[in-house]
Nucleic acid binder design. Sequence first.
DNA 1: AAATGGGGACTGAACGTTCACTCCGCATAA
DNA 2: TTATGCGGAGTGAACGTTCAGTCCCCATTT
Lengths: 196, 196
Amino acid sequence: MKKEVVDKRRAILTAALELIAANGFHGAPTAMIADAAGVGTGTIYRYFADKEGLIEEVFKDVETQLNETLMDNYPVDQTVRRRLDHYYTGMIRFFIDNPMKFKFLGQYYDSPYGVALRRDKIFAQKDNGERCETMKNLFEQGIAEGVIKDLPIPVLFALFIGTLISVARDHILGFIVLDKQLIRRTADASWDAIKR
Amino acid sequence: MKKEVVDKRRAILTAALELIAANGFHGAPTAMIADAAGVGTGTIYRYFADKEGLIEEVFKDVETQLNETLMDNYPVDQTVRRRLDHYYTGMIRFFIDNPMKFKFLGQYYDSPYGVALRRDKIFAQKDNGERCETMKNLFEQGIAEGVIKDLPIPVLFALFIGTLISVARDHILGFIVLDKQLIRRTADASWDAIKR
DNA sequence: AAATGGGGACTGAACGTTCACTCCGCATAA
DNA sequence: TTATGCGGAGTGAACGTTCAGTCCCCATTT
């Protein structure tokens, strides 16, 4: 835990992420994860309760990284649109830069593990005071200001984020190449969907 | 195969669809499918090569039903927007009316089974002459007419269909209730995303 | 400095379970 | 009798998990 010489916990987390992203949950047996991490199969159970526990930890890890990325340079004092755009482009970039993490999240969300998870829960910050807001809050502010359509929050969420996920997947699968300009135009188009 | 008294093939297809939609691929062992269908486990292998073959058949079945639904009352002579709207609302209604089929498709698409599948392939008609068009064609027409943004087809697809899938899922999971009016407003918002 | 001993991180063969799939006998029909 | 459609106990492979044993580190002793 403290020695950095060989952090086996990290090695297991990384191996699990990569193998699950590449082959799915059931294409990543514990023996294979242990192998890729360079540890014995038993060692996994020294750091995690069971395979499900391991997967949960991987998820939390990715979630934290994504949240940290999104908090970076958060434009607190700008318009609702600018703040939403920060989230949108930040997420796209994170997924493009970390395709394995994107695929893992995809695996996670529609599986027994993630069914109970609400989509907006991802962005529910816990202890960051005023620096960030949930997207839900942003949508509500936008509606109050009259700049966003008065639709139920989950619908706005679907309109705004559903596209993001589809576009990111297409990029990762190689159907399109999302350069800076195309990201810009996609983000604008998604804004068109929810703007009043 | 020909006797309708008890169509075991159909019973197996139906049972597989329901169980996979409810519990996922790995929560639906062959023994359970056979039980639900009221046949012996061995009988499955009289009608299908293996479990993968069965799942493929279920997929083709659902695909065909969806396509047939969409061909109904297809507004051949109307504007691009009207024709796209026909697809959009038709799909939403199909998914709302057949939540199990929606869930099954979700399972199918991000699994080893569906990786090779292109999204627009779903709508590639085979033998229907001029009655229907692929969404790809509709997007291209729209771009040529100057009514749709000049973005890559997969991006337009993501903008238009990504939202549909998210919204349908939210409805099926019970987070929102999609009545006729809300479907209308969602379809319009999705159009805003792609319209010029 | 060198020798010793104890403790805990680590390992992987082995275990029990689960699953897709097979095989052979049975029931029905001709 | 022969042919056909079917059932479900049985089979081997693969999986998650365990646990008895190994090995390394370091405190202690000489």
